Amino acid sequence: MAAANTYYAVSADQALSEAQAVLDEHVTSSSTGRCLACDSLGPCWRRESATRVFSRTLRLPTRQPGATRPELVGAVRLSVPGLRATR
């Protein structure tokens, strides 16, 4: 008989919380294409693992505007009439 895994909502919430912390730390820079935390090229394996957690739970991570430091490639924030700024 095959063993079954039981997952509880608390452990799923904890996994999502830990994955969010990894995503917040391991951000791929807009200017260099490297992870700001571990300096590896492209999205690092830690970030990829964290994104899989969100994918499996069909949830979206919280976005942090400006985390990729777009100003390093000359991006500027524009105000668009009719759009509200969000936090």
Rank of each mutant, 00 (worst) to 15 (best):
residue 26 H to S: 03
residue 52 R to S: 10
residue 37 A to D: 08
residue 55 S to I: 11
residue 33 G to K: 07
residue 76 V to T: 08
residue 44 C to G: 04
residue 66 G to P: 00
residue 48 E to V: 15
residue 53 V to Q: 03
residue 60 L to P: 01
residue 36 L to I: 11
residue 2 A to R: 04
residue 55 S to W: 13
residue 40 S to G: 10
residue 57 T to R: 09
residue 53 V to L: 02
residue 47 R to N: 05
residue 8 Y to E: 14
residue 48 E to S: 14
residue 78 L to D: 04
residue 16 L to Q: 00
residue 13 D to T: 08
residue 4 A to C: 15
residue 34 R to D: 09
residue 73 V to A: 06
residue 83 L to C: 02
residue 84 R to N: 03
residue 67 A to R: 05
residue 75 A to R: 06
residue 68 T to N: 11
residue 19 A to H: 01
residue 59 R to A: 07
residue 8 Y to N: 14
residue 83 L to Q: 07
residue 11 S to V: 09
residue 3 A to H: 15
residue 38 C to D: 08
residue 60 L to N: 10
residue 2 A to Y: 02
residue 61 P to M: 03
residue 73 V to M: 09
residue 81 P to N: 05
residue 65 P to K: 09
residue 65 P to E: 08
residue 25 E to T: 10
residue 54 F to W: 02
residue 30 S to L: 05
residue 61 P to C: 03
residue 33 G to A: 07
residue 74 G to M: 04
residue 59 R to F: 01
residue 53 V to W: 00
residue 47 R to Q: 09
residue 69 R to S: 08
residue 68 T to L: 04
residue 46 R to V: 09
residue 25 E to L: 09
residue 14 Q to V: 13
residue 26 H to K: 01
residue 52 R to F: 12
residue 58 L to F: 03
residue 64 Q to V: 10
residue 70 P to A: 02
residue 60 L to Y: 12
residue 9 A to N: 11
residue 72 L to P: 02
residue 25 E to N: 06
residue 68 T to K: 11
residue 32 T to S: 14
residue 76 V to R: 05
residue 8 Y to Q: 11
residue 40 S to N: 13
residue 52 R to A: 13
residue 66 G to A: 05
residue 48 E to R: 14
residue 5 N to D: 14
residue 56 R to S: 13
residue 42 G to W: 08
residue 80 V to A: 06
residue 13 D to V: 06
residue 4 A to H: 13
residue 64 Q to G: 04
residue 29 S to Y: 02
residue 80 V to Y: 07
residue 3 A to R: 14
residue 49 S to E: 15
residue 52 R to P: 06
residue 37 A to E: 14
residue 39 D to H: 08
residue 73 V to R: 05
residue 78 L to Y: 10
residue 52 R to M: 13
residue 53 V to D: 01
residue 67 A to D: 04
residue 80 V to R: 04
residue 63 R to S: 12
residue 72 L to I: 02
residue 35 C to R: 05
residue 78 L to A: 11
residue 71 E to A: 08
residue 4 A to Y: 15
residue 51 T to E: 14
residue 45 W to Q: 11
residue 12 A to H: 00
residue 32 T to K: 08
residue 57 T to H: 10
residue 87 R to A: 13
residue 14 Q to F: 07
residue 30 S to D: 09
residue 23 L to P: 07
residue 46 R to D: 15
residue 13 D to C: 07
residue 17 S to C: 07
residue 26 H to F: 00
residue 39 D to K: 10
residue 51 T to D: 14
residue 27 V to C: 02
residue 36 L to S: 13
residue 55 S to D: 15
residue 73 V to D: 07
residue 65 P to N: 09
residue 69 R to N: 09
residue 59 R to G: 04
residue 52 R to K: 11
residue 60 L to M: 06
residue 39 D to S: 14
residue 25 E to Q: 11
residue 23 L to N: 00
residue 55 S to F: 15
residue 47 R to C: 08
residue 14 Q to L: 14
residue 53 V to I: 07
residue 7 Y to M: 10
residue 82 G to D: 00
residue 40 S to F: 06
residue 41 L to N: 09
residue 6 T to V: 15
residue 33 G to C: 11
residue 24 D to S: 10
residue 83 L to P: 01
residue 6 T to Q: 15
residue 25 E to Y: 07
residue 11 S to P: 01
residue 54 F to C: 00
residue 69 R to P: 07
residue 32 T to E: 05
residue 57 T to Y: 12
residue 23 L to F: 05
residue 10 V to M: 05
